[in-house]
Design a protein around this nucleic acid. Structure first.
Length: 618
RNA sequence: GCGCGCGUAGCUCAAUUGGAUAGAGCAUCGGUCUUCGGAACCGACGGUUGGGGGUUCGAAUCCCUCCGCGCGCGCCA
């Protein structure tokens, strides 16, 4: 996966920013040139808070002894007011322990920031996220889960980074398959006002079956005798008729026939209802305003081929228009020999629209990994013709974020074509149901904080918990890897799960509300990071803005999950060893409440990057 | 055939993008427990990171080569 362009931005409240500046200056003084100090969080608390790793690589380049170079850099570094302890270790690491006051003031500045320390974006261009990608007249299946929640989560990350974000739902709402479905429904004289998605789905599959002429095509391919061909042609007469009907319907649709267009719009309406429902359930920001499908680009397709032909990037081959590439045999087909356009043509029109009209300098396609070759071709073709530039000529980054396939328990791709498999709706219903059952079971305990809540309230919390389980299971892993679809694992509530994070959040919220202090009073309390557990928690909180920047750069949503899991663990450790409400000293009580408040806010904001809600009680 | 992707504990996955002793969850076993919320915490067990070679102070990570699995490959989307 290609990286998005890296931003030089560094969070002001992250102590690593100041360490970077100081060591950079020291390296310059010692080595006579600029180099990345490679400041990293310590992997192990016994090595301090941060480490500077640049000395080893630099020593190699300069032909010096790494430990001696590290010593020299350390001597040249101004550590006043930042590090309380700093020493060379191992082959040439420099281990750094921060002054407590630095941690406290940094944390205060993060707490005061409305973006939790994330620096505001300086890039005025937009980020475009291609997500969801449903097809009209087809049921959403589990594959759409990934394309929807990964895309939405990335969009949320870029919004947190202060970027203008376009969520683009590139609907499959045009072309022969839709016309076939439409034609079949019309032939059957169906009442379009009463159509359900299941009806559409059945019609879609039926139309595919009716018009299939695989055997006939194969017979031609293998040059069967005239008798055999005539026999097959007779057998396939109904298929031919259905196809004729579909093509006529397509032409009427393309020419803007009012009646056909009305019925077509109805198909989209029925299909999209389920998408909006699923998006609501999943807490994904996705609605009708995000719809920009194949039909939107239909008038631009001829222009695409024209532009490629005129520029000489495309050439005619066997009656079709293709874009050849210098480094590979396989060309990209953009127009069929019968004059028809292909999905590559639409994708090229969309690239142009997204870079030039939406002004995106980063366009991310959240589409499954099997289309890797296709997008490589489309992006390369777009670059060849100069369409990868924004309005002001900035070269845009085009990225295909190819996520792994959804596999069944047998490790084979989950097929929904024959229709016997569960739909996305089935999965979401099950997740909400299990979440609700779990919440209600616990609420039955008279000591539970949720005891006595109305059933509707418990069901709402249960849905939030069930959906969190599903989303976290998906987003916290490596996106490029295949996905083993296991409902029991996905809706698990214990261990490394979404509900575990929600639980940590609810506990903190509970402490804060039981304290009897107002939020204002807590916010005024100073930080006093005396205990190791407090210190460790604070250090990790300070890494939040850098983590968000890293996700924006790498598009790896699993970093959010890793960060939040660690945050929850560190909070639990703090909670274990440092009494808050039971603290004997009033000032200690208040400063620990302050730490709780910041931890809660960061946890909630991090969960919001996944589109996971954090209930106060569960 | 060509191209691309993936192989880490019994299972599902991590590993701060080349850093110090490869970590979690589930499962199994043991402990914490009249609780600031047990959906929790602590510990034990479990590994030749598919095999081999190379690069270097240092490799699960980069290069080469095998092996295994998956996906894609001109008129579908």
């Amino acid at each position: 996966m290609a990286d998005a362009p890296s931003t030089p931005l560094r969070p002001a409240c992250d102590p690593a920013t100041e360490l970077d500046a100081r060591f950079r200056a020291a390296i310059h003084a010692v080595a006579g040139r600029d180099a990345d100090p490679a400041i990293r969080a310590s992997g192990n608390a016994k090595f301090g808070d941060y480490q500077m790793n640049a000395a080893m690589a630099l020593a190699k380049e300069l032909g010096k002894n790494p430990r001696e170079l590290a010593d020299a850099i350390l001597k040249a570094t101004d550590l006043a007011g930042i590090a309380s302890k700093c020493e060379v270790a191992g082959p040439g690491f420099i281990n750094i322990t921060l002054e407590r006051a630095v941690l406290e003031s940094s944390l205060a500045s993060l707490a005061a920031s409305s973006t939790f320390g994330v620096p505001p974006a300086t890039d005025p261009h937009a980020v475009v996220i291609d997500l969801c990608g449903v097809n009209v007249a087809k049921q959403m299946h589990v594959g759409h889960l990934r394309a929807t929640i990964i895309g939405d989560s990335l969009a949320r990350v870029f919004e947190r980074l202060g970027r203008k974000v376009w969520r683009e739902n590139h609907l499959g709402d045009w072309g022969l398959p839709i016309a076939m479905t439409l034609a079949k429904l019309i032939r059957e004289k169906r009442d379009f006002a009463r159509l359900t998605l299941d009806d559409l789905n059945a019609a879609y599959r039926g139309a595919q079956k009716e018009t299939a002429t695989d055997d006939l095509d194969a017979a031609r391919e293998f040059r069967c005798g005239p008798h055999r061909l005539a026999e097959l042609e007779l057998q396939y007469e109904p298929a031919r008729a259905a196809m004729e009907d579909a093509k006529k319907t397509l032409i009427r649709l393309q020419s803007g026939d009012a009646e056909i267009v009305r019925l077509w719009e109805r198909l989209i309406e029925v299909t999209m209802e389920q998408v909006y429902d699923a998006a609501r359930t999943l807490h994904c920001k996705l609605g009708a305003e995000n719809n920009r499908g194949e039909s939107f680009f239909r008038d631009r397709l001829a222009g695409v081929v024209d532009a490629f032909a005129k520029s000489g990037v495309a050439k005619s081959d066997r009656g079709a228009m293709v874009v050849p590439f210098a480094d590979r045999e396989r060309p990209l087909l953009i127009q069929k020999s019968d004059g028809g356009f292909l999905y590559a043509t639409t994708d090229l029109a969309a690239v142009r629209f997204r870079t030039f009209e939406l002004d995106g300098d980063l366009v991310v396609y959240v589409v499954d990994a099997r289309q890797r070759d296709h997008f490589k071709d489309v992006f390369d073709a777009a670059r060849l013709v100069g369409w990868s530039k924004t309005k002001d000529g900035t070269e845009a980054t085009l990225v295909h974020l190819g996520f792994g396939a959804v596999l069944g328990a047998d490790k084979k791709p989950l097929k929904t074509r024959s229709g016997e498999n569960f739909t996305l709706k089935d999965l979401l219903d099950e997740a909400c149901e299990r979440g609700a059952a779990e919440v209600m079971r616990r609420a039955a305990d008279p000591n539970a904080p949720t005891h006595g809540l109305a059933e509707s309230e418990l069901r709402a919390i249960g849905a939030a918990v069930g959906i969190a389980a599903v989303k976290y299971a998906d987003l916290s892993g490596d996106l490029t890897k295949d996905y083993v679809f296991d409902l029991d694992r996905m809706v698990a509530f214990e261990g490394d799960t979404g509900p575990y994070l929600q639980y940590a959040h609810a506990r903190i919220a509970s402490i804060l509300s039981k304290s009897g202090e107002t939020a204002e009073a807590i916010a005024r309390a100073p930080f006093a990071l005396a205990e190791p557990a407090e210190r460790a928690l604070a250090l990790h909180i300070l890494r939040y803005p850098q983590m968000v920047l890293d996700v924006g750069r790498s598009l790896e949503t699993n970093r959010v999950g890793l960060y939040l899991r660690t945050l929850a663990e560190l909070f639990n450790a703090f909670y274990q060893s440092c009494p808050v409400l039971k603290a004997d000293d009033a000032a200690v009580r208040l400063t620990r409440l302050r730490l709780c408040a910041v931890a809660r806010a960061v946890l909630a904001d991090g969960l919001s990057l996944y589109g996971i809600v954090a209930p106060e009680r569960m």
